[in-house]
Structures are given as C-alpha cells and as structure tokens.
C-alpha cells in the first residue's frame, strides 16, 4: 500500500514538473520582438535586443514556476511520500537495530561462551596442575616410603642376622657346656663306679640308713 502511494505521488510530481516546465517555456515569440522594438525606440542599440539571458540567474517567470513546482512537489512528497519513506526508514532502522541487537546478543553469548570456555580451560589447567602436583607428591611419598621400607628391611635383616649369630653362639656354647657336663658326669660315673667297691657301698648304705634314722 505504501509502495503504491509512493508511486502515485512520484507520478503526480513528475507530471506537474513537466507541465509547469512546458508552461514556463511556452513564452510567445512576439513578445520578445515587441520588447526589442521598444528598446530601439527608446534609443537603445540592437545589441540590447540580442542580450543573452543570465546563465546563473533564471528568468523571473521560471523562478516563479519553479518555486511553485517545487512547493507542489514538496507538498506532494510531504503528504504522500514522506510517511511511507519514514515508515520504511523506521522499519529498516528497526530491522537494523534488531539485527544489531541480535548481533550484540550473539556477541555477548559468544563472549560468555568464550568466558566459560576460558574458565573451564583455566579450571582444567588448574585441575591438571593439581593432579600433576598430587601425582608428583604421591610419587615422592612412594619413593620415600620405598626407601624407608628398604632401609627398615635392611636394618631388620641386619638385626635378625645379628640375633641369629648370637643365638647360634649361645646354642653352640650351650651344646658345648652340655657336652662337657655329660662328659664330666660320664667320667665321674666311671670313676665312681670303679672306686665304689663293696665295702664303700656298704658304708654308703649305712650312712644313708643312719641319716634316715636321724631324720
């Protein structure tokens, strides 16, 4: 509808300009001749009749018609074309504004997504650093534990070895003592068995009986 109104106003304005221009240019040729005669009769030269019109300043009637045409065209355009152009411009401005708003929103969203990604990236980097640090600490702790355990086991082994050696020495000493004792007793038995003749044995028995009688 707006396009139709704009087209109609344009056609009217163009038609009016053409008509007015035609009217302005339709000056009768006899009028110029009469003016020239009057100039010659008034004592003017022929050159005054052949004076060319000004290239800058239009003729008065052209100026009047041009001003009227301009006003008419201006009024028609103001009446019919301006609202449509204004509406179209507003629509276009709104569309551009919406587009800009959408672009802003998209930009904001992209920025927020970028921020989120950057934050996540920072978090991931921080997490990875933390994990690496923990892994390093765990590895250090594990290494320290292994070294401590190895040292402890070595210490235990040394201690057990010392204890085993000590126990073996004690066993050897005990065995030696037992063997010496048994040998001593065995020799004593042999000596006693040979020295205990019948009379000695009887004396022993008498002593035992006497001790029993006293108790």
């Amino acid at each position: 509808m707006k396009t139709c109104r704009l087209l109609a106003a344009t056609i009217v304005a163009v038609g009016f300009v053409v008509v007015s221009a035609h009217a302005a240019s339709a000056k009768p040729a006899g009028e110029a001749q009469e003016q020239c005669i009057r100039k010659l009769e008034g004592g003017g030269a022929i050159d005054d009749c052949q004076k060319a019109p000004s290239l800058i300043t239009p003729a008065k009637n052209e100026l009047i018609w041009g001003a009227l045409s301009f006003l008419v065209v201006f009024g028609a355009l103001a009446k019919f074309a301006y609202p449509a152009i204004k509406t179209s411009m507003e629509t276009r401005a709104n569309r551009i504004r919406e587009t800009l708003d959408d672009a802003d929103r998209a930009k904001n969203e992209a920025q927020s997504i970028l921020d989120e990604y950057q934050r996540q990236l920072a978090d991931a980097r921080s997490e990875s650093n933390r994990i690496i640090e923990e892994a390093r600490q765990t590895a250090d702790q594990l290494r320290r534990d292994l070294v401590a355990r190895a040292e402890q086991e070595a210490q235990d082994l040394r201690q057990r070895t010392q204890e085993d050696i000590g126990a073996a020495q004690q066993r050897a000493m005990a065995d030696l003592q037992t063997q010496v004792r048994d040998l001593t007793i065995e020799l004593t038995e042999k000596v006693v068995g040979r020295s205990l003749d019948r009379d000695t044995n009887r004396a022993l028995i008498d002593g035992y009986i006497a001790e029993l009688e006293r108790s």
Partner: peptide, 22 residues
C-alpha cells in the same frame, strides 16, 4: 644306681643313691 639305696613306700620315694647325686 651305682651306690647307696632308693626306697619307695607307697607314693613316697627316698632317694639316697649315687646316681641321684650325680
């Protein structure tokens, strides 16, 4: 018992033997 005597009366044992001394 090598020498001496060992006497047992019931559950009572009185050991005066050389074996016991050894």
């Amino acid at each position: 018992i090598l020498g001496g005597i060992v006497a047992q009366v019931g559950d009572t044992v009185i050991d005066g033997s050389v074996r016991r001394r050894l």
